[in-house]
């Protein structure tokens, strides 16, 4: 196992100790190692440098590297916490941790707020929501008249922007999602419960002596 370990660290510069990553997240050591199998495959799909760049991330999401998508870009930026333009293994595990079924709801709400606060102003503003809505319409087959888009925005801000100052703050967002729990569905990935069975090859590449379950 020793030769695997040193080789893996050379090839994956941001690779952190799976035992430490497991201690910081809802994942077991085995699950962290299974996630590494997924990470290896995504991070080698375009440039085999042990890091995930935006093109590789979009390729993994859409199975088509030509697809540009503002939502995928936004998720990538939130995974790339060190703002390096690439996602290392530690970033990958800690960001996916928020999507674990056992992760605290507070963390999911925080992440979703940042997702929609595209400008990072600390508020979800109407122009941001409009931009995302228009992007969604371009991406889907859905065709809506401009007036309908405005009516949807009016209705959304009437419900979410309780103090009616034209923007949604964190407290208003927490209140809004508690009234609309379906909005948090995208923040939980049931797949994360089964990653050791999805990527069973992790047992051959394990760096730890005993696989915790």
């Amino acid at each position: 196992m020793g030769c695997f370990s040193s080789k893996a660290r050379r090839q994956f510069p941001g690779r952190e100790d799976p035992v430490i990553l497991a201690s910081q997240t809802a994942f077991t050591v085995s699950e962290v190692e299974a996630l590494f199998e997924l990470f290896k495959s995504i991070s080698s799909s375009v440039i085999d440098d042990g890091l995930i760049n935006k093109e590789e991330f979009q390729l993994a999401l859409f199975k088509n590297k030509k697809k540009e998508n503002i939502f995928a870009n936004r998720i990538f930026d939130l995974f790339d916490v060190k703002r390096k333009g690439v996602i290392d293994f530690g970033d990958f595990v800690r960001a996916l941790n928020v999507f674990h079924p056992n992760a605290p709801l507070e963390d999911k709400i925080d992440f979703s707020f940042k997702l929609y606060d595209m400008d990072g102003t600390g508020f979800i503003e109407r122009h941001e929501v409009k931009q995302m809505l228009i992007a969604l319409l371009c991406e889907s087959e859905l065709r809506l008249a401009d007036e309908t888009v405005e009516v949807i925005l009016d209705k959304t801000f009437l419900e979410a922007d309780v103090n009616q100052d034209g923007k949604i703050d964190k407290a208003e967002w927490q209140d809004f999602v508690s009234r609309n729990p379906s909005l948090m569905k995208i923040m939980t990935l049931p797949y994360l419960r089964d990653i050791t069975t999805t990527f069973p090859s992790f047992v051959f590449h394990s760096e730890v002596d005993e696989i915790a379950t």
Binding site: L61, N69, V129, L133, L136, I152, L183, I186
Partner: peptide, 25 residues
């Protein structure tokens, strides 16, 4: 009377927000 989806319900249907596809081989 059909209820209109709010903007976030619509946005959350984007394929770019469906990270589940990362796990599909």
């Amino acid at each position: 009377r059909p209820t209109m989806m709010n903007a976030f319900e619509l946005i959350s249907t984007s394929q770019g927000l469906n990270l589940g596809t990362l796990f599909e081989k």
